[in-house]
């Protein structure tokens, strides 16, 4: 017994160190799935409040730019409506069947916390479960892809940014339809890498890259960016550097997109895979 006490007294620092480091590693390995950790959610509630305040003060500085962008978006939407009205005057009257037709639900949200300088970047938006946000919904800006929701509390959600080493999305070259996997290499917040495009495919600098919709998270045809340059990689593939269309430094307003038919697709795929 005395030996044991001696031992503890002698190495108490090391023991405390190991215990604390153990807790830290536990948080590190399990904590990244935000919703699992209730403690974290509680404290995030507090820090989110503070972050929201910081964001509020800061957003005044960029109001002009935001207005400009919203105006642009309005124009685009108005144009779309105008086109639709014309279509409705055609011979075949389209039936607006809201049950079977609408596949994607859009909600807008504001980014209250964001980072681009880490290797695994996340951002927080000001809507959560109460507003119908769920894990694995897609997040986009008016122009392009922004991220995927990974965790929700009641009024906030955390999304994994495209600028995260763990982020992957299926994307294709718009002009010819060849698809590959898009991910970030952790270097520059302006560029992502599109891989798995075979070398016989004709790639041009400036080609548009868009999402495919295969993953059941992102709708088809959301723009990711444009080809900045490409090089041969490995035996058969190109490694394409994509200039991202979304400016992650200025992420303010985002759309959260839920796929209403995702469950159906995934269940079906599970049967045959």
């Amino acid at each position: 017994m005395r030996n044991l006490l001696n031992f503890l007294a002698r190495y108490n620092n090391l023991i405390i160190f190991l215990i604390l480091e153990g807790i830290a590693f536990y948080l590190l390995t399990t904590g990244n799935s935000y919703h699992n950790s209730r403690l974290l959610n509680g404290v995030r509630g507090i820090t989110n409040g503070i972050n929201a305040k910081i964001y509020n003060t800061r957003s005044y500085l960029s109001l002009h730019e935001i207005n400009e962008r919203l105006a642009g978006e309005n124009v685009a939407l108005k144009n779309k409506i105008a086109q639709m009205v014309r279509e409705e005057n055609s011979v075949f009257l389209p039936v607006n069947d809201s049950i079977n037709k609408q596949q994607y639900l859009h909600t807008s949200a504001e980014v209250i916390e964001n980072s681009i300088n880490k290797q695994k970047n996340f951002f927080t938006i000001n809507k959560g479960e109460n507003q119908g946000i769920k894990v694995d919904m897609a997040v986009t800006t008016a122009s392009g892809v922004a991220g995927v929701i990974v965790g929700c509390s009641r009024n906030y959600s955390v999304a994994m940014s495209v600028l995260n080493l763990d982020f992957k999305v299926s994307a294709r070259i718009k002009s010819n339809g060849y698809f590959g996997s898009l991910s970030w290499d952790g270097r520059d917040y302006k560029y992502a890498i599109l891989s798995e495009i075979p070398q016989h495919v004709l790639v041009n600098v400036g080609d548009t890259i868009e999402t495919t919709g295969y993953s059941a998270i992102f709708p088809e045809g959301i723009i990711v960016g444009t080809v900045d340059n490409y090089e041969k990689y490995g035996g058969d593939f190109y490694k394409i550097s994509v200039l991202l269309i979304t400016d992650f430094k200025k992420l303010h307003f985002v759309d959260v997109i839920g796929n209403m038919k995702k469950k159906e697709q995934l269940n079906l795929e599970k049967l045959y895979k």
Binding site: I23, A24, F25, Y26, L27, L28, T29, G31, N32, S37, L40, V43, R44, I46, T47, I50, N51, E113, S115, K118, K120, F122, T124, V158
Partner: peptide, 8 residues
């Protein structure tokens, strides 16, 4: 960690 959202 709580402020930068990087548990642990």
């Amino acid at each position: 960690d709580f402020f930068s959202g990087s548990p642990g």
